[in-house]
Structure formats: C-alpha cells, structure tokens
C-alpha cells in the first residue's frame, strides 16, 4: 500500500458517499445516470468475486464489501425508492455498446484464460468506460448540479491517483500491470474535459454549464 493508492481508494469511497448522500438528502436522482451506476455495480461484482477465494488484507476485504453494498444501495435508491425522479429520457446511452466490446476484449487480451481472470479483465475494461453514460447525460442536459460535479471530480481523481500508484509501484517494487494501466489511462482521459470545466467553473462557484 502507498499514499497514492490510499488516496485513490479514499477518493473513490468519497465519491460513492457523495452520490449516496446527494440522492438521499435531495430525495432525487435527477442528473444522475442510472446506467452508469448499473455498469459500476457490474464492475464491482465481477472484480470482487475473489472476496470469497483470496484474502489479501482486512482493508481490502472491507473496502470491497463497502463498494458492493454502496453500489447496491445506490441502485435501490435510483430504481426503486426514488424511481419517479429518474431521468429516463436523458439517460439513453446504449450500454450494450460498452458491455459487448469489453467482453470481447477481455476474451482476447488478458493475463490468463481462466474464469476469474477473464472476469477481472472484463471488469477493468468496463470500469474505464462506465462513466460514459453519466458524461453523456451531463452533456445532454447541458449542466450538472454542483454536488454531482463533486461526485465526478472525486471519481475521476481516484483512477488518476491510481496512475501515480502504478508509477510508484513500478519504481519501488518493479510491479506493473499493463491491462490495468492502459484502462486506467483511458478512464482518466475521459474525465479530462470534465476536470477542465470543474476547475475553471465549479471551483469559482459557478454552475457546471457545458458549452451548448
């Protein structure tokens, strides 16, 4: 464990908590893409199956349980409790266009052709594009509530911090994983446009308005 990875995990945890609080407090999931949340749930379920097979550390196991539970709670709030506030017609990204290529790529490029490894690889590829429906929704509505932009900033920062973690681990432990690094770079690049808007607008107290 290193400071970059810890900061990344905490940023990830913060993002998930911000989202849950936003939906719970405002009793609305307006501006949030349910499809992205479904993809994140798939990412956690396919990646954290090893929760039952390999024990790495208490921290690792607890965080996995928290992420899966929070993801399930978010889906419950969005699709059951506050279903009426879900923005169906703007959340129209075709997630099969993300799922199918990730499955195919995971079957072609992986470290090991075993079920667990293929699922882990699929999860890594899917996570890198899982935010697209959310960014698509923000671009369609043309704006995002400031709490949603804080959520996106924390979520984008998590994988950016992981990139620093991988640089550190390569230098300090001669450890690297090209699949995770490649997907992490793609994932972080997808947020760059948002990071620019967040820093130039939201931090100045303005609302996140995408140029029409």
């Amino acid at each position: 464990m290193n400071i970059f990875r810890l900061a990344g995990d905490l940023s990830h945890l913060l993002a998930i908590i911000i989202l849950l609080l936003k939906i719970w407090k405002t009793r609305s999931c307006a501006g949030i893409s349910g499809k992205s949340q479904v993809l994140f749930a798939i990412v956690y379920l396919t990646r954290y199956l090893d929760l039952f097979t390999t024990y790495i550390s208490l921290y690792n196991s607890i965080m996995k349980i928290v992420f899966i539970a929070a993801s399930g709670a978010t889906l419950y709030l969005m699709y059951v409790k506050f279903k009426a506030t879900y923005d169906h017609n703007h959340d129209s990204f075709r997630i099969e266009f993300l799922l199918i290529p990730c499955v195919i790529l995971a079957l072609i490029i992986n470290h090991d052709f075993t079920v667990m490894e293929i699922l882990w690889t699929f999860s890594i590829y899917l996570e890198s594009v899982a935010i697209l429906p959310q960014l698509f929704l923000v671009s369609k509505t043309g704006e995002a509530e400031s709490i949603t932009s804080h959520y996106l900033f924390a979520l984008g920062s998590y994988r950016a911090l992981y990139l620093l973690n991988w640089i550190y681990r390569y230098m300090a432990e001669s450890h690297y994983d090209l699949i995770a690094i490649f997907a992490g770079v793609v994932q972080t690049i997808l947020y760059c446009d948002f990071f620019y808007l967040y820093i130039t607008k939201v931090l100045k107290g303005k609302k996140l308005q995408l140029p029409a």
Partner: peptide, 10 residues
C-alpha cells in the same frame, strides 16, 4: 520485472 499476478488492488 514481474507482471502483476495476484490482483491486490481494489
């Protein structure tokens, strides 16, 4: 340099 075998990251 060893490729990551055990996925010890979240």
């Amino acid at each position: 340099v060893k490729q990551n075998r055990e996925h010890d990251e979240l």
